[in-house]
Design a protein around this nucleic acid. Structure first.
Lengths: 154, 154
DNA sequence: GCAGAATAGTGAGCATGACTCACGGTGTGG
DNA sequence: CCACACCGTGAGTCATGCTCACTATTCTGC
């Protein structure tokens, strides 16, 4: 049956999801980080200093959760809270030197990881793989939105 | 720079990981399940009734965690605890009727999902995609073990 | 210019899932 | 038959997530 090949392919995709997740979690733990806290650092890297409110929106998480994440990152010395220059209600979350260096090191690590995954792959297969991946992503983004609508909007 | 294409491909893979994770979490929540509890149900599906100790080993999780997962699944009526026929220390975790039906429904859902992802993809691209995916998985399995050794053995 | 609405952050309290440590009940090998 | 190993779980901890309530501030509309 042809559908079995699809099942097998989906199993492969799911295994990939698990392996990537585990690998990330493990390597982050070595830096004293968690996945959620790293997402926050990444967002900070992309946007520069941000208010916690903006972080909550960017991470699609409640404001309260951001308070907790920043608490943790502040305790472990990756970020610091600065007063907002014009809005005394808000705080600006900024990198410490250690935080900045850690994120830069992670970027280098990611580059190495990408190389390790793809560098030895024949160019033709790489192109075809990314094409297939892109097609799946497009499809997933579509149904992802479709499935969100009935249950919860947001 | 050629490495940028690898980075872009890795970004795609990471986006896939996130999308799949979110999709799974959402659809499981509709059934009153979580990812962890579903892993347990899956293991039960593959092996039949199991002791909690075996479940802990299969899920790569502490025995205490399994107690909590089974507690939850028992409360929501997916599994039940049965006395072990020969070892009075152990309990056998078995499906309830509802649990069995739910898992079977999930299997059908997975089949549909695989179809939805791949059925419209040209055969040639599908073959090439799965080939690339397989290559990456092989590589990841290798380094996954390699990376475990220095940090933690286990 | 000032009252009331909206916004920013956080305390309190809850659920889940992961861990360790300790402990009681049970099985088993010497 | 006794010491040791093993099964499950209570107790306590940590990290994420949530909501609700509250304070402090800012903005708006009259």
């Amino acid at each position: 049956m042809i559908g079995d090949r699809y099942i097998a392919a989906l199993d492969q995709v799911l295994e990939l999801v698990v392996l990537i997740n585990d690998d990330m979690t493990r390597s982050l733990a070595r830096d004293g980080l968690t996945v959620s806290r790293t997402h926050l650092l990444w967002e900070l890297r992309r946007h520069g200093p941000m208010t916690q409110r903006d972080l909550a929106a960017a991470l699609k998480v409640s404001a309260r959760t951001v308070t907790g994440l920043v608490d943790g990152l502040e305790t472990t010395g990756f970020v610091s809270r600065q007063p907002h220059p014009t809005d005394r209600r808000a705080t600006l979350v900024t990198f410490t030197e250690r935080g900045r260096q850690t994120v830069e090191a992670m970027e280098r690590g990611q580059r190495e990881f990408a190389h390790l995954l793809f560098a030895e792959m024949p160019a033709e297969r790489f192109d075809c793989f990314t094409a297939g991946l892109g097609e799946i992503l497009t499809r997933l983004r579509g149904i992802g939105l479709a499935q969100q609508l009935p249950g919860d909007d947001r």
